[in-house]
Design a protein around this nucleic acid. Structure first.
Lengths: 218, 218
DNA sequence: GTAATAAGTTAGAACTATCTAACAAATATA
DNA sequence: TATATTTGTTAGATAGTTCTAACTTATTAC
């Protein structure tokens, strides 16, 4: 059984690996807000437990067991987010912080029940895939909205950023997953996009925003 | 903000005070499965935080603040149990362990939402009162079934023991809260009761069982 | 290719929550 | 009351997670 603290290291390492390939002590340290020496010593501890491969000065890698345990925590997080939205009426902007705590509950039957009540969803409210009981998950290859070109019509598929501030911004523009967005023009100087969707015929989205939104072909 | 560990001491002290009046280090130590010296030092720590009144060799007492914080943890526990039963379809025997973990989640809006979805219940699935947001709760004065006499017709109101084993025993005899039970006779030697209820005209309940069931006049 | 900078490690300290061993106080018993 | 038992405290040790300071290795820039 891993402690809550170990679980947070595993999860952060798993997420960072998926985001940026190779992960080093410095990155993990920044992600967790924990100083590097502490991270080093935890990596040694997790290496002893066969959850990470650790060699001095080398990039950090989860073992297969480490990946599986991390996936299960992420499964619990995403099922919880989905449950909070679908079955309890929370907005997608309010669920991350709660799920961050609920994900550490050790009670498989609790999460199985959520899964069942939700009808075995494949995606969470932010469009991220929910790993199955064995920790397997399928990542669809989405593109960033910021990488699309003028004239493209794309469907919003997922968000990368799940902070309250970002999601409230999307709410304020009535932007939600599944929506079809047409790119009317792109400002070359700062890569701001002018887009249209639903009843909104001309909305301006900064590059910062477009970078955090994943889309797929309609 | 109190740690999970501090919360468990507060809750145990609160529950023991309600059960048996004066609480000493030894009792609290046994309840928590933690050795006495550890309990002593935690009491000193909680006294510094103005959550308990502590004097060497004197009984332990929660301060008003301590009582309030303990009540809020118990509120979260009982709302969770009720939610698991009413909104997620768990049996009353399966919810204690899960609630034991969920009660430590710091997210008032999560528990407010449960309360709302449940329609502001006053009692949990085991018949215990749910404290309000300010930590206030009303204890109805129930009697133990074991203290009733032959001929009494009583309604099952609450259970004292929430372990899986005990509740499964009650399930196996179709005993649930709200049920009317008539005491047909009491064996003087071991205080075993012969009772009737529903379609069951003659069931035998040991003193151990009757002691754990609270009842009220019909 | 050396110097400067960034990243990583080691050593040692602090804090929390736990324990055991030894002693002290309070309570029960004879 | 004197003794035995129970209860409670003090002191010191251990394990987990964190930190800072000092040092080492790797990478970047000139």
């Amino acid at each position: 059984m891993n402690s809550l603290i170990e679980e947070n290291y595993l999860k952060a390492l798993f997420n960072l690996s998926n985001e940026s390939g190779e992960v080093n002590v410095n990155e993990l340290s920044k992600r967790l807000g924990i100083k590097m020496p502490t991270v080093t010593s935890m990596m040694k501890k997790l290496a002893k437990k066969k959850l990470v491969h650790y060699e001095s000065y080398k990039p950090l890698r989860l073992t297969e067991r480490g990946k599986k345990e991390a996936s299960i925590i992420i499964r619990k997080h995403r099922l919880t987010e989905m449950f909070l939205v679908q079955n309890m009426g929370f907005g997608w902007e309010d669920v991350h912080e709660i799920a961050e705590q609920v994900e550490h509950i050790h009670a498989p039957e609790f999460f199985e029940k959520m899964d069942e009540l939700l009808g075995y969803p494949k995606l969470d409210p932010h469009g991220s895939p929910i790993p199955d009981k064995n920790g397997k998950m399928e990542w669809k290859q989405y593109n960033k909205l910021s990488e699309c070109k003028t004239g493209d019509i794309m469907k919003l598929a997922a968000v990368i950023d799940t902070t309250v501030e970002f999601l409230k911004f999307l709410n304020s523009r009535e932007l939600r997953l599944g929506l079809k967005v047409k790119i009317k023009s792109i400002e070359p100087f700062d890569r701001t996009m002018i887009v249209s969707y639903g009843k909104r015929l001309s909305e301006t989205l900064s590059y910062t925003v477009c970078e955090r939104v994943l889309v797929e072909k309609v």
